[in-house]
Amino acid sequence: MRENHAIRYLVRRLALAAITLVGISIISFSAVNLLPGDPVSSRYPQAGASEIAAMRADMGLDRPVYVQYVRYLTALARGDLGWSYNTNTPVTEDLAQRLPASLELSIAGLLLAIAMGVPLGIVAAVRHNRAADHLARLFSIGALSVPVFWTGLVGIYIFSYGLRWAPAPLGRLPLTVTAPPQVTGFIVIDSILAGNGAAFVAALQSLALPAIALGLSLVAPIARIMRSAMLEALQEDYVLFARATGVPERDVVLKDAFRGALVPVLTIVGYLMGYLVAGNALVETVFSWPGIGRYAVQAMLTSDMAPINAILLILAVAIALTNLVVDLAYAVVDPRIRHGLLGA
């Protein structure tokens, strides 16, 4: 009965996600194929009419729209995301090559943001309406308001050019350092695996500034949701009763209330991912970080349609999956949801 409930719920969620994805594929397909501007003539402005017609026929652009859409879908199913005119490489290859760099930066930034945002939110809630709360709020609104690309530039000016604590913003490793052999794709980890201390330190130094810039841009949403979730949890009767039975205040906050606050905090994970991706594009551009964000910006600057299309599609899938995982995570965190209140 309860399993049934959970399975029905899961199926419904998957169906909704599928509908969304079909919608997204239609939109991204239309964006590339139906908007004014012909991909052939805009690519080769010097080509003659007959050449263009030949190329269009070659690419299947003379076929009816629904045929083109089906072809597009079958290509997608094979993992074929098209060809980038910029790099002259299949988009799939381009993305695979750049993914580790983006992941390394994102994970580092996210960890920093959590390490700052969660304690900040908890302190603000515990010291509600007192100086610490106002300061935390001021800090998080400030962090939300300073553009991440500007934070990056100021950081570069002070720490790279001024104090020379950080290397020049030229990617994941300075030119003088040889990269360790690729295992995980994360240079920080690969250099440990290779026992290459110099590369490890250099990689960390290169990672520090962009990760901090990215992390700062994510602190505000984390701290704010943490604060309001904690405030709500601290009002709960079970927290009052825990105090009444002599549970030390430290545990009341960090165990009882924190556990209760996790559910609302989970709701913003999907939203946070959007933030993370957008921040990545800006930070990677500022620091010449060879990741997907910078690749996407390059594609958009040059109207390189296949990569734009692929990135939008992958993002939508990733965010839909994240939301699905988050929904399942609720059940792990909260036994009430686990026990069949799912569908209700």
């Binding site: 009767d237 009052l240 039975t245 002599g246």
Partner: peptide, 20 residues
């Protein structure tokens, strides 16, 4: 003194228990 001689019981028993 709470938990060391004094203890409170609340109105709503279910709400008073830690749901997790």
């Amino acid at each position: 003194r709470l938990g060391h001689g004094i203890c409170l019981l609340l109105q709503n028993g279910r709400g008073a228990l830690n749901p997790f």
